[in-house]
């Protein structure tokens, strides 16, 4: 195959991974770090699979002199420990980098119910702005979402921006998002929550200016208390 053809194939493959809920099309640094973690682990896993299946295939044949310790200790213990140790280290390191911290990030609220989301952010005057199934966040800076639930357990997930975080009645959970650029991102409830589960979707709108001016955005917004 020629090089352009290869490049085309790779492009097709990558395009196949695209979609509004795809973790493989990240749109912020948090989701990007996790996506890199995935690609690295995928490459490693593919190599290991080929290696192990190669050993298996070579096993079919005449008996060979072989030392038990090479298999149980060399491969079983040390080889696997080395790989697993580096994967664990990478995972914890990325985890530490993307945790929510006390750094004055903008905070918004997400309240889940059967079956929908009520989001709240503060406008320029500090008044609470509520919206249903549409979350406003600033672009280009970290945002902490405080997640609560009205009834059963739900899960807040915007795959292009970050991993998911459950909404659990009686608790407040904190998830950190960051969108690189202004735009619209899809979100979905990831924890099974009853017959409306499949339809419990929402949209995240990342704004260049913050707090956003929503005066001309239709009737969905309500100011202050409902």
């Amino acid at each position: 195959m020629t090089r352009p053809a290869l490049a085309l194939c790779a492009l097709c493959l990558l395009a196949a991974c695209d979609g509004p809920l795809s973790t493989l099309q990240p749109s912020g640094p948090i989701a990007t770090e996790i996506a890199w973690l995935w690609w690295a682990m995928l490459a490693g896993a593919a190599l290991i699979t080929v290696f192990v299946l190669g050993l298996l295939a070579m096993g079919f044949g005449a008996p060979r002199k072989t030392q038990a310790r090479v298999w149980t200790h060399g491969l079983g213990l040390w080889f696997s420990m080395a790989i697993l140790g580096s994967v664990l280290g990478a995972g914890l390191w990325v985890g530490e980098r993307i945790l929510p911290r006390d750094d004055g990030a903008v905070t918004v609220q997400a309240h889940a119910f059967q079956w929908g989301w009520e989001f709240t952010h503060e406008d320029a005057n500090g008044a609470a702005m509520r919206s249903t199934d549409l979350l406003h966040i600033p672009a280009g800076q970290p945002v902490d979402v405080l997640i609560t639930s009205e009834d059963v357990i739900h899960s807040f997930w915007v795959p292009q921006l970050a991993g998911k975080m459950d909404a659990i009645p009686g608790r407040t959970n904190r998830a950190r998002l960051k969108a690189d650029t202004p735009g619209i991102y899809d979100g979905i409830c990831a924890e099974f929550c009853g017959v409306g589960h499949a339809h419990m979707r929402f949209t995240v709108q990342a704004h260049a200016d913050w707090p956003p001016d929503l005066s001309d955005e239709g009737t969905e917004q309500q100011e202050g208390a409902p």
Binding site: T23, A31, E33, I34, L37, W38, M41, V87, L88, A90, G91, L92, V94, G95, I98, S155, P159, A162, G163, K164, M165, A190, E191, F192
Partner: peptide, 12 residues
């Protein structure tokens, strides 16, 4: 088992 990846892949 890797925490950040699990946050994305969990329940999918």
């Amino acid at each position: 088992a890797i925490v950040p990846f699990n946050w994305q892949a969990h329940d999918t």
